[in-house]
Amino acid sequence: MASEHEEEVRVLGKWASPFTHRVVLTLKLKGVAYKYFEEDFANKSDDLLKYNPVYKMVPVLIHNGNSLPESLVIVQYIDDTWTNNPLLPQDPYERALACFWLKTLDDKILPAVWNACWSDGRDKAVEEGLESLKILQEALNGKRFFGGETIGMVDIAASFIGYWVDILQEIEGLELLTIEKFPKLYKWSQEFVNHPVIKETLPPRDKLFAFFKASASKNKDSTA
């Protein structure tokens, strides 16, 4: 029988967004039923303006009438609300360390890698992106996943690295996350995208490639 939590869960998101994917993936891993609503940024829905009036961005989780923005805030809320398959360690130190890497990912690593992906090969941006990937690889510390033998919250937060980067670097003709440069992190990315739940949840690669290819062309045209 479905729990009361599962009956009133909605997600406002964007299909191509790795941040929306964090939320969807977490719900899938927890086995939580939800309704998904795709947002059009050119014509934002009344719900988006109502439930995230500060940033007016996705993702937004609406649970029992209460709303939460920001993907990491949402993911931690889901983990605390549906306690099966915990995504954060129970040990206080390990939990705090995972939270440190969650913050480091969003504050330092993901922005650097994103900038490198759209850098047109500029040396400084690529160098900073590679340095960030090096930091992330060292955080694996010989483990299969950042969460150990199973997917954890840090793995979910790093899904952009695990899937989106491969597509973006191909579009831009870059070599960022490769097996030669980062063998352990590359192996993690392959384990991650081939995890059964994650594999069925990720946006189709060809569709995502076309979306970002069009975005890249549009950006280049606007700066020509």
Score class of each variant (00 low, 15 high):
Met1Thr: 07
Asn115Ile: 09
Phe146Glu: 05
Ala214Met: 12
Lys213Asp: 12
Glu128His: 05
Asp80Gln: 13
Val23Glu: 07
Asn43Phe: 09
Glu172Lys: 05
Asn141Ala: 14
Arg22Trp: 00
Lys134Ala: 12
Ile135Leu: 14
Lys184Tyr: 00
Met153Asp: 03
Glu7Cys: 09
Leu105Cys: 10
Phe145Ile: 07
Leu176Cys: 08
Asn219Pro: 00
Glu127Met: 10
Trp118Glu: 09
Pro18His: 04
Gly173Pro: 00
Lys181Pro: 02
Lys218Pro: 00
Ser3Ile: 00
Thr26Asn: 07
Asp120His: 07
Gln169Met: 05
Lys44Ser: 04
Cys117Pro: 03
Leu61Ala: 10
Ala214Gln: 15
Ser215Cys: 12
Phe209Gln: 03
Pro92Asp: 12
Leu208Thr: 13
Ala42Pro: 00
Ile135Trp: 12
Asp166Trp: 06
Asp46Thr: 15
Ala98Arg: 03
Ala125Gln: 15
Val32Thr: 06
Leu176Gln: 09
Ile161Leu: 10
Leu87Thr: 00
Ala2Ser: 07
Leu97Val: 13
Leu202Ile: 11
Glu39Thr: 13
Thr150Cys: 13
Glu8Pro: 00
Tyr77Asn: 01
Val32Glu: 06
Leu97Glu: 14
Ile161His: 03
Leu88Asp: 03
Gly13Ser: 07
Ile179Arg: 15
Leu208Tyr: 03
Ser3Leu: 01
Gly148Met: 06
Phe209Leu: 14
Ile135Phe: 13
Asp80Thr: 12
Gln90Trp: 08
Glu170Asp: 15
Glu127Gln: 14
Asp40Met: 05
Met1Gln: 12
Arg10Asn: 13
Tyr55Cys: 08
Val75Glu: 05
Met1Lys: 08
Leu110Lys: 11
Ile156Met: 10
Phe146Asn: 05
Pro196Thr: 03
Pro18Arg: 04
Met1Asp: 11
Glu180Arg: 13
Gly162Pro: 07
Lys207Ser: 12
Val54Thr: 04
Arg205Gln: 09
Asn85Gln: 09
Glu191Leu: 07
Lys134Gln: 15
Pro92Ile: 15
Thr81Pro: 02
Asn194Pro: 02
Ala42Thr: 08
Ala210Glu: 15
Lys124Phe: 06
Asn141Asp: 15
Asp106Ala: 13
Phe211Thr: 04
Glu149Phe: 01
His195Leu: 06
Pro196Asn: 04
Glu38His: 02
Leu102Ile: 08
Ile78Leu: 12
Asn64Arg: 14
Met1Trp: 02
Lys28Gly: 01
Ile167His: 03
Pro89Cys: 04
Thr201Pro: 01
His195Phe: 08
Tyr51Met: 08
Gly142Val: 11
Asn84Val: 11
Gly13Val: 00
Val165Glu: 08
Glu191Ala: 11
Trp118Arg: 10
Leu88Phe: 07
Leu105Lys: 06
Asp206Ser: 12
Leu29Gln: 03
Thr150Glu: 15
Asn43Leu: 14
Leu48Gln: 01
His195Ala: 02
Lys28Val: 02
Gly129Asp: 13
Val154Ala: 04
Ser217Pro: 00
Lys14Asn: 10
Tyr36Asn: 09
Ile171Glu: 05
Pro86Glu: 07
Pro89Gly: 09
Arg144Leu: 11
Pro196Gly: 08
Lys50Pro: 05
Glu170Tyr: 02
Gly65Asn: 04
Gly147Ala: 11
Trp114Ser: 13
Leu12Val: 03
Tyr55Ala: 07
Asp107Met: 11
Glu170His: 06
Tyr163Arg: 01
Val197Ala: 10
Leu174Lys: 00
Phe211Glu: 07
Phe19Gly: 05
Leu61Ile: 10
Leu72Ala: 05
Lys103Gly: 06
Glu175Asn: 10
Asn43Ala: 15
Val126Trp: 05
Lys220Tyr: 06
